[in-house]
Nucleic acid binder design. Structure first.
Lengths: 330, 330
DNA sequence: TTCAAATTGTCAAACGTTTATCAATTTTTG
DNA sequence: CAAAAATTGATAAACGTTTGACAATTTGAA
């Protein structure tokens, strides 16, 4: 790899001049600029960002800590973030916390050692107060990490109400909600709250089934089957689309017609689900807007770490209505 | 962030000694070691990897270039790679090439500027000969990039045969294959070859429908519907699972019973598909083994860039058989 | 032509770490 | 107790870049 000195030699100028061209400061004639650019081009020169970053310039590295990209929702969110960040000339260090606190701690240390310019995190571990001592700016997705760390999320409460009210409106009276495990900081708690409030308003009973995020799909099927057969609900609202797919499957195995005998609403509304399970009604999180906002806030903090930001930013959700709720023309 | 000198001062030793402890060379008494470790601990010291990497140590950064993690297959592959790499104390820079040659070029430059220790790439662009001039070791997934760049893939030809023979064995006689666009270097070409050879051996006609990777699912549905209605095949083999889901959907819309009237086999066999579409028969790529092998080869090259490796490594695929091919006990 | 402004160069320090060299000190061993 | 061995320290150079200070040169304008 060519270095600054090589470019200077080829262009017949000093390293200072080349640096002035690259960093665009001091006074420079057009002639030298073109000479230098030409030399950079023929040598295929690329400033060594390690050296720059050691010297004090921004590394332009952003750490992304999420449970894992194999989950469609996080996969789409991470991909969207990466696309937008890379368009802004940032690079992404990917960290799959797999919802393990130790892993997450190790990632935080590592990111600091690598001098990242900022961090966006969306893991759902609790009690990680280590975030308070990180000097890089942090933006959190959907989870409280500390008083000075802004939370960006979509409107989980409204999402819960939206889904539940849709089910009520279409005639359901026994509506089960399947949520992840009820953990202190989990964003799904608000979805449950929305569900409960809607049902209470309509004078209908609530039935919440908690299936931990980490539970295997096979076990989830067993649990779902049991609840469908014993409780015989006429609607199920799941706090994620994948679980909703399982419910749909089990219902079919039980010979329950959807939506006639069982209405179904999921949550997240990824592109994948909308494209490949369009019949599934679901609450759609605005992934693009969420990514834009997180990046915008992070850049503000990168520019000025002391800038005052809101504690919480909430973006609206929307509803995708498919045949899992309303019978279509056969 | 504490630096080496701070640790030295706190431990009451010289920076040389601290560095000797960290890098484990020279002779050291247990006593000083413990003193230094204690100081590192109380200061929460973490060596600045930017400085280390500038000095000449490995950055321990690995660049991952893939079309995008929102596709379940690549999502799972990337997540698996990241998990295994991070267990080996490597960090991952994520690059979503979105199958765009310019983007990919830019990523390559960027990765070099960041002094990555190695690169694993799995994009399907053609003619990127720039890979030849990269000094970091490269391992390619499923695609030819240059004479000295090993290709790791699963056995696409065997996969094509496996799927086709399964369909023949279960009585299909008019088997359509839906593949991605036929591009020079695409791994799916071998799957098509396996399909064609199997059918030729069985004296059955071949029907290949090419639907570009980038085509929207909605358009794909239209194409699929047209082919199902005009050709009236009794089986479809798709070169990826997502397309197979579309075929299943369209078949249901057309009132075709699966597998009685239409048998269906997909390709990739991600965890996601096996968990959430278990009825879909599919050719399973060994994602874990692929990741292990790629990492193992990359580490060999990192240790010794001149080490001779095979041009091609092929891992066996397996078959997941679900109800989309064989009717189960109702 | 002359002086000011603009341009370019030289030199050096800094970022945090590694590592070599050589010297100084401490510990061990016979 | 002396000599050998082990341990530790002081110093400096190096990685590639940025940037400030200041000097030297060129250019342009009056």
């Amino acid at each position: 790899m060519a270095k600054l000195a090589d470019v200077a030699k080829l262009a017949g100028v000093s390293v200072t001049t080349v640096s002035r061209v690259i960093n665009n400061y001091g006074s420079l004639s057009e002639k030298t600029k073109t000479k230098v650019f030409a030399a950079m081009h023929t040598l295929n020169y690329q400033p060594n960002s390690v050296a720059r970053s050691l010297q004090g310039k921004s590394s332009r590295l952003i750490g992304l800590i999420f449970p894992g990209v194999s989950n469609p929702f996080f996969g789409e969110l991470v991909q969207t973030l990466e696309n937008k960040l890379s368009a802004l000339d940032y690079r992404v260090i990917l960290c799959n916390s797999v919802n393990n606190a130790d892993t997450e701690r190790a990632y935080l240390r590592m990111l600091q050692a690598n001098q990242v310019a900022g961090i966006i995190t969306g893991t759902h571990n609790l009690t990680i107060r280590e975030y308070e001592h990180v000097d890089a700016p942090i933006i959190s997705f959907d989870r409280h990490l500390g008083d000075n760390i802004p939370i960006v999320s979509s409107d989980n409460y409204a999402g819960g109400k939206l889904a539940t009210e849709l089910l009520i409106k279409t005639g359901a009276t026994c509506i089960v909600m399947i949520s992840g495990a009820n953990r202190p900081n989990s964003p799904t708690n608000l979805r449950v709250k929305g569900y409960e409030d809607s049902l209470q308003q309509a004078d209908l009973p609530t039935h919440v089934l908690e299936l931990p995020f980490s539970m295997s799909p096979t076990l989830k099927r067993v649990e779902i089957r049991q609840h469908l057969t014993t409780l015989k609900p006429d609607a199920v609202f799941c706090s994620d689309d994948l679980t909703a797919i399982l419910v749909g499957d089990v219902a079919q195995e039980l010979g329950l017609k959807i939506p006639e005998q069982l209405k179904l609403v999921g949550y997240d509304g990824t592109r994948l689900i909308q494209d490949y399970q369009p019949q599934l009604s679901t609450v759609v999180q605005p992934i693009g807007d969420l990514a834009d906002l997180m990046i915008q806030l992070l850049r503000q903090r990168i520019k000025d770490n002391k800038v005052q930001l809101q504690a919480q930013y909430t973006l609206p959700v929307s509803l995708h209505t498919g045949a899992s709720v309303l019978a279509t023309k056969a």
